[in-house]
């Protein structure tokens, strides 16, 4: 029986983390490969990177990325290979485009409005805190202080 709704709490049954032995010419390539597959999204999984997924397609795509990196081509080329075929969906780091402007700029925008909020608050709060005294009042205050100390 195939139930369309798989009831899960944490994860898919296909959980066995991907384990492949990969040989690289140098460690820089290995680092690039590992960083890349950690930032690319597996298409058939719920929400896993290529690195974490055990799905068949993820394995094939890891092979492709490995071939590209191992043959000395750039990371950009590996990314282009995938986005040409699957679109921006495969990138966990969304590229900066007109539609993602708000995504990348949003946090800064929120922070700035927060700082404006703080600034306005402080201006209101502290302006009342320091009460402006007239010349005469100032003199009276000084006298009072002297009396208290004396």
């Amino acid at each position: 029986m195939i139930r369309p709704l798989i009831l899960l709490f944490w994860l898919l049954p296909l959980i066995a983390a991907a384990v492949e032995v990969r040989e690289f010419d140098d460690t820089a390539k290995q680092e690039r490969y590992e960083r890349l597959i950690g930032e690319l999204r597996c298409l058939v999984c719920q929400n896993q990177s290529l690195a974490d997924s055990d799905a068949d397609l993820a394995k094939d795509l890891r092979d492709e990325v490995y071939d590209i990196i191992q043959s000395g081509r750039s990371e950009e080329e590996a990314i282009r290979f995938l986005t040409d075929r699957y679109g921006d969906f495969v990138l966990y780091r969304p590229p900066l485009k007109s539609v993602t402007l708000l995504l990348w700029g949003g946090p800064l925008l929120i922070l700035l409005s927060g700082i404006v909020f703080i600034w306005n608050q402080v201006k209101r709060r502290s302006s009342v805190a320091r009460i402006d005294l007239t010349e005469e009042e100032q003199q009276r205050l000084e006298r009072l202080k002297r009396n208290l100390e004396g």
Partner: peptide, 23 residues
């Protein structure tokens, strides 16, 4: 914002993106 951004883009028919740990 990051969690809901893909949903908003999809709802506005502006394409599908993923927002993950690098972001």
């Amino acid at each position: 914002l990051g969690t809901l951004y893909p949903l908003v883009l999809d709802a506005l028919k502006l394409g599908k993106i993923s927002v993950g740990s690098p972001y």
